[in-house]
Design a protein around this nucleic acid. Sequence first.
DNA 1: TAGCCATATAACGTATTAGCTATATAGCTA
DNA 2: TAGCTATATAGCTAATACGTTATATGGCTA
Lengths: 107, 107
Amino acid sequence: MSSTDELTIDLEAALKALASDRRLQILDWLKDPAANFPPQEHGDPVEHGACNQYIVEKLGVSQPAGSRHLKVLVDADLAIATRRKGWVYYRRNEPAIDAVVRAMSQI
Amino acid sequence: MSSTDELTIDLEAALKALASDRRLQILDWLKDPAANFPPQEHGDPVEHGACNQYIVEKLGVSQPAGSRHLKVLVDADLAIATRRKGWVYYRRNEPAIDAVVRAMSQI
DNA sequence: TAGCCATATAACGTATTAGCTATATAGCTA
DNA sequence: TAGCTATATAGCTAATACGTTATATGGCTA
């Protein structure tokens, strides 16, 4: 594998996942979890992201609705979930997001 | 207006329009209409793009289905329609597409 | 003007998406 | 192990998307 290898992405699937104000908002918040969410007892915001609960609350939707948005992002490989001490933390998958941006530049 | 002005775009709307293999394919074909479609009697491929009919045929869907895909692209401002001698020609809206790509780079 | 051809719209069926409430699961914690 | 809390799934409704066929529109052309 050389440094020029790019992740293979499913552009249509990624765009479907991104074509939602709610999910764009989540990804934006996750650029800086420490600034956008309350302090967390467990799970470093920078390393692991923000917990499901905080994201749901900030979105202002029901817990299942928020949970599903996060699942869409994870399924599209745009976010990564980390389970830790009973909470699930979500963070951006930067390499995959970069790959989508690169693919977009050739559209 | 300075040269640094950017088009204001509705990113969610643009991504919804792009989140379709069929429409990504259309935009790709329209990068080079002369190479991707048969010769046209009227309407310069480079200037005006390809006519509805050729796009529909190449997509392999019914005429109304193709027509609606094109309408989605036009409504999202990603394509431009030109009516001429009874045909409608479609071409890419490069400035708008560029604006989407720029917006995406900040996602 | 009359007819014709390209394109758009209407109407309909099916699949997907997004919200909700209710419930199940997972896994700490005591 | 038992209970509790966080998260995920199930089941429902409403809205949206995409395909079809049938029909309407628009505007050349003769």
